[in-house]
Design a protein around this nucleic acid. Sequence first.
DNA 1: CACTCCCGCCAATTA
DNA 2: TAATTGGCGGGAGTG
Length: 896
Amino acid sequence: ENIFDRSRMAPKTPIKNEPIDLSKQKGCTPERNPITPVKIIDRPQPDPWTPTANLKMLVSAASPDMRDREKKKELFRPIENSEQSDTPDSSQYDIVDDSTVDEFEKQRPSRKQKSLGLLCQKFLARYPNYPLSTEKTTISLDEVASSLGVERRRIYDIVNVLESLHLVSRVAKNQYCWHGRHNLSQTLKMLQEEGELQYGELMTSQHKEQYLEYKFGEQKKETIPDSQDRPLSEFSEPDCTSASANSRKDKSLRIMSQKFVMLFLVSKTKIVTLDVAAKILIEETQDTVDHSKFKTKVRRLYDIANVLTSLGLIKKVHVTEERGRKPAFKWIGPVEFTGKTDELRGHSPTSDALPGTQTGACAQYQTSATGKQRFTRHASFNRAQPCEAARRKVSSEPNSPRQERQACTVNSDENCSKMINLAAVCRQKIEEDTGNKACDTETILNSSENSNITLPFSLLPVPGDTDFCVNPLPQAVFPVVHADVPSFSLPVGISSQASHPSTPAASKTENGKPTLVPNQPFLCFPSSSLFMLCGGLQENNLSETLPASGDVGHRSAEAQAAVPPTGCQKRSSRKCSSPSAPVDDEEPAAKKQTLEQSDLPLSLVVPKNPSESPKPEPSPGSGCSSAVHLETNCLDLASPAAAEAANKESTKPLDCQEQEKQNKDTDEPASGNEHISKENANQPFQPQYLYVQPTAGLSSFNFLFSANQAPGAISLAANQLPSLSVPCVMVPSAALASFPLVCSPSFTSPLSPVPDGSFSAAASTSFSMSSLASTTPVFISTTAVVTPKVAPAPSVDPQQPAHPALHLSPVLTRSCSAVKLDSPVCMGHPVTLLKLQQPSSAPLTPKSIRPAHHEAFFKTPGSLGDPVAWKKNEGNQTRNASSVQRRLEISSTSPD
DNA sequence: CACTCCCGCCAATTA
DNA sequence: TAATTGGCGGGAGTG
């Protein structure tokens, strides 16, 4: 075609043609020179009109490449033009003469014509979707670049993304092997699995734990050698060269692309907003996520999105949030890939054959020296692929990194962890976003703005004893476990979050996994084992996250079940200690655990219409449980500030700090609500705390979650459960009776307003002290106490307390029940009571003022699924509903 | 003005 | 050292 066009074009820029040809052939370069010059000359003339043209000319003069490029481009144009219709008649071209316009058009094909997406389509058009297995098509970068009339750089953009999906693999220098979509479904499946793992990890829980720990350790220490990795490596293949590899390669586009896809696959809604994705993808360590960085990430996402769009896997959509509409992408590719290729695949049997190979390996994870985790690609993934041939070629260099790359694997633990983090981040964001508004509708939430998330949990072991377990929630636990990882991961989310105050909540899990609560600190009461979580927990995610599929549910369920016992113990001792088992000693966990899961994405998704569907799905209950999970995860505390320091060492100061910040931002003091909640009944959750019954492992412990929690952090609440959001307290049931817990304000306070880092300290401290003392005391009793106040929940009430409550409650209940079955988390039983007294009482966080709190609280959470919000508005409810649905879904699954 | 995202500099990797 | 890859971000096009 080009040629053809060219002929047309010829008149204009005959010279160009020549160069082009040359360009195609690498060897030829020398020739180019001669030619190019000519070209230049020609060009100028045509372009004179446009300012840019001049610039280009200058540039071209400067660099030959440019010239070639342009030439190429021009070649293309015709095609493009034809598509668009712009193309002026040939006559015009020639004639062009003066009409600047015409030429103009010619020369500048409109940006769209040059878009990466279009280029990708052209690229894809060159190769069959399902090539015969026998033939292997090799792709020469130079050739393609020249034929498409673009610089190589652009081809790399395309190829890198395709490579991440295993549509192509790199065989050698400048040589790629085209595999087509035979393996696409497998790849997607793998990606989905990975994504889920992060959340759910059930399957690999053990491994995960290890990984997490491992990772965790690494992050902290960095020094940790590969050995640790090994464990992980199981999944992946041995191949991976240990950590060595990661370099730049691992970075970006490829990985980013995979992660991006994972987000879609994990998301219930299948819609991911750019900002959320960007946040998630920003692994960075902490906070500092500069704005610039974010921007860069977004740019890359656009690049990736363009390619994915060309592949027909996603499409651009807009999510409207409160703030306005945000750009987002919806997954329109296959969702279920069960076995292998599905739809996508189509024909070739070959693909089927391949399957086995790929899957296995998923991810490995390596850590980087830096402590960050990276993904490594493993050949494993691809091995099976068609690429083999290619490999053979390459074979000589089996180990070369590049090859690995090609093979790529997707995942790795790291990815997972990252994902989790991301998710967390997303959640936070979402929360934040949502928090702000009550939002309603459709949009989901993403928040972009805040990138912060917080996860602030802190744990305080009061007594120091062992018990603090974190995992109150089964699921949560799970996550928690992960959490460890999260912490790592957190960096992303957390860190970012940290930096940003606003989001506290974050933790949650998506899928059902629990996440940690981010910021909440736990308190341990000496006497028995009680734990309080402060900060926000978020349930958020819980509900939302769930991944759509049953898998999630399972996971969650598993998680729940497993978690407590296993998870906790296993993972990190730190984190959780099972009741029976005391924590490790050490520090507990403090640190640890912050994991979050990422659900965010999911949440984001939320589709619209919430309003209409008032009800959430049926499975709300599950949500609860899930929610719970979430929270739990986190543990640590970190109070940055100090206070807590005493207790623990917070390992992660950062987080803490961040958390604090978040808290501040959001803040909400928990107090806001001070109601007590009870669980059993259905009371509205509103209450800030939820009581969870211990389940298996925890049997002895009760958990209380505050719904409110920190506003920010908690915001999660949004999710669904009000309760979730908050911090949890675990109390041994028996113990409870005797203990008074205080919650509240403290929590909130820290979260909220507090200006500075205090947060953590506050939290922790407050926890113990202030909250108890000053603020309202919470009582926990074995019996359930309901607090009178419940109703009070001020803000909520008015609206419809009932509804919300109902919703929640039912859900909760269900979930609880469900959960209970499985796991401990249920509400109710025993009772708990917490009362927080009124806000007033909670002077600590005056700022937060209850009212405000509530609102804020509501809002934010609401977006997520804040209960309150729901209550308030039905509209919200609807929204919530959506979230609820998610929850439900999750929950439903979870029960399993 | 915000969203997109092209373009290409230039560093990291490879050959 | 040269070439290949590809991160990255300025800033332009689009709506």
